[in-house]
């Protein structure tokens, strides 16, 4: 194995890791805000990828251009899902955790079924796009453009989210709601509006990831399943409640995946990710940067 091969693996792993971070950050945000894990997160990603695909197929809009549109649509979708379903799951007086897990899990099954019903189970993909198939080569190290742009979008999204939470009024309202939902009601903040906004924002972020991925990944009703578990592990590894944790978690997962494939048979590369997660939480039971 040459040094170049190792550098290439690490570079690919880093790019993929930033993308994992972008996929996971919506989950981290929603969890941090209201202590709910969205088990339909992978299906949100699937919907975003389909949206990109159809915008391309019917209106010839490049996935990169349609990314803001997809993110906006997912924002609405996320907020609606909160208002129609999740809001009621949070009212459960008993077994709140289980109710939330299984409500969102049931939602995931419904979304998969609906996708199969309306979009057929056929495999789709966007054959030609501005980014798809293009690659930059620096000293023999190849950096595929879709992943490269994905990584940049991911960094920008994390930076934007950081500024949003810490520097804007609404962001502070979110933080305050998270810390004490009862008290914010007294100062006139509508908890449901904040939560709906949080769900919308979380969904918009995964929508962004889906739009980027549509230009280099295949799309079918079950595509979310491959990414869902990685997203949960990413968030937990970084620590629930920490947006920065999801960022760091994503990078670690990407790098660990790439290095595991260098030393173990590639069919075992996920074992590396899982083992690192277990190792981290055994040492730090709240993940790397978790507060909860």
């Amino acid at each position: 194995m040459t040094a170049q091969a190792i550098i290439q693996s690490l570079a690919s792993g880093l790019l993929m890791g930033l993308l994992y971070g972008l996929i996971a950050v919506g989950l981290a945000l929603i969890f941090g805000l209201m202590d709910v894990t969205n088990f339909a997160h992978g299906e949100f990603l699937m919907i975003a990828m389909y949206l990109s695909f159809f915008l391309f197929a019917f209106f010839a809009i490049d996935p990169l251009l349609s990314a803001p549109l997809v993110a906006a649509a997912l924002f609405v979708f996320g907020a609606v899902i909160y208002l129609l379903i999740v809001r009621f799951a949070m009212r459960a007086k008993a077994n709140a955790g289980m109710v939330q897990i299984f409500t969102t899990f049931g939602l995931a099954i419904v979304m998969r079924g609906l996708a199969q019903f309306f979009f057929t189970p056929d495999y789709r993909s966007i054959p030609q796009s501005w980014l798809g198939g293009k690659t930059i080569s620096i000293a023999g190290i190849f950096l595929p453009e879709p992943q490269l742009v994905g990584a940049l979008v991911s960094i920008a999204a994390f930076a934007g989210l950081y500024v949003f939470i810490h520097r804007t009024d609404f962001g502070r309202a979110i933080e305050a709601t998270r810390e004490d939902p009862g008290a914010v009601a007294l100062v006139g903040i509508d908890k449901n509006r904040v939560f709906a906004f949080g769900w919308g924002l979380g969904a918009a972020l995964v929508g962004l990831a889906g739009a980027i991925m549509a230009s280099f990944f295949y799309i079918y009703p079950d595509v979310g399943a491959s990414f869902a578990l990685i997203a949960y592990v990413t968030v937990a590894l970084g620590g629930f409640g920490s947006v920065f944790g999801a960022f760091a978690g994503g990078i670690i997962v990407g790098l660990v995946e790439a290095t595991t494939a260098l030393v173990l048979p590639p069919s075992l590369k996920s074992v590396g990710i899982y083992a690192v997660y277990l190792l981290v939480v055994f040492i730090r039971p709240r993940g790397l940067f978790g507060s909860i």
Binding site: S9, S12, S226, E257, A258, L262, P265, P266, L268, K269
Partner: peptide, 12 residues
């Protein structure tokens, strides 16, 4: 190379 079906990435 034996790989896991439906992997999110095949770069390695």
């Amino acid at each position: 190379i034996k790989y896991r079906a439906n992997s999110p990435s095949l770069s390695a």
